[in-house]
Simulated assay, not measured.
Amino acid sequence: MITDLKINEDRKKLYYEKGYWSEKTLGDIWLEQATRCAEREYVKDDKGSRYTYGEVDDKASRLAAWFIDQGIQPGDVITFQMPTWAEFCIIYVAVLKVGGVIHPLPRKYNDADLLYGMNLVGSKAFICPTKVAKIDFEDQILSIMNDIPSLTSVALVDRMSPKHSDLPTLAEIYRTYEPYTERPVITSDDVACILSTSGTTGKPKAVLFTHNNLIFSERVFTQGLKRTQEDVMFMPSPLNHATGFYHGLISPMLMGGRTVLQQDFRPAEAIELMNAEGCTWSMGATPFIYDMLKCIEQGGPHFETLELFVCGGAPVPGTLVQRAHNQDVRLCEVYGSTESCPPHFCSPRALP
């Protein structure tokens, strides 16, 4: 349980006075959007799932009821290891509804990685798929759950394969529980999310973000890029990453917008998916846009609706900017880290 985060009081006072921070939590904003945009689609993935704000809210409320039944309290860390699926949204919203701490881990983590990551933060609950491709996530968590002292509850997403244990699935939870409607007793200065760093210089670190951190960062980001509710985000990056989660899911949610997910990036399929769904902006590392431009230049499908690609994680050469411009797409270069996402970006302008 994380309830004792220390924040510099002078900075905190200044940020509230300037209006950077407010009393609203991500859960408060989600509830507003779920009420205002109930019939509006929030998320779609390339495996066939589509959910409106209202549908995500209903399923998340039922999952939240299960969390409460399992003894989850505000500040408890709920870990999940998910592919780039729409169900990720249901899980993170359910965590917000009980005042928990969102803790997504990479899909590639093996049993040793999970043990380290979950014991580091004291995970209270865990959710993962049963099996995806050749990876049996259910077997993996069953083999280590007794070695995580804080862990009390595990649930499965049986979207691709039936379960083979007595662990509950999200589908069973939806059928069993009524929506949880109480509001958690938390503040906007409490920890909302923990992301793991990549571990390039040692073991992955756990980076803590408050509700105010995320809300301010993403609102400044979308305002600087002149994005609106009518824009549609395309996100092929992993959702445990700052790019995938914050920019791919939180940014659109704060605007009441839509996001489209691709589990495994393939450039031609990505372009076709964006065209079909009317995606107007995207974000990812440089190789994503490089591969799509190469696909187009070699005779593949062309962009029909994409206007802006926010690009970082590797150098962005001027020739790439020009190649994107030739396809009527503006590149916006960003720089950031897990700890700050992103503190710098080049405002996109039309080329002369």
Rank of each mutant, 00 (worst) to 15 (best):
C37A: 12
L120F: 12
I250C: 08
D58H: 08
L351K: 12
I72R: 03
Q262L: 08
H103T: 06
C89R: 05
A276D: 15
C332P: 03
V334K: 03
L63W: 04
G54S: 08
P106T: 11
V93K: 04
D166G: 09
N212A: 08
G248Y: 09
V154A: 06
R159P: 06
L96A: 10
V56A: 03
A270G: 06
M233A: 13
I127Y: 01
S217H: 10
E182K: 11
R107W: 13
P238K: 01
L105M: 11
M118G: 00
R62I: 10
M160Y: 15
K47A: 15
K97E: 02
D45K: 01
C128A: 09
E218D: 13
S217N: 13
A38D: 09
T228W: 00
Y42D: 10
T152D: 10
K6L: 10
S49G: 14
S337E: 14
A268V: 15
S165G: 04
D139W: 10
G257K: 03
V329Q: 01
N212P: 05
Y335N: 07
K13H: 12
H103G: 02
T243R: 08
Q223K: 13
L63R: 06
R175A: 15
V121K: 00
V93D: 02
F309M: 08
D139F: 10
G300K: 02
A133G: 12
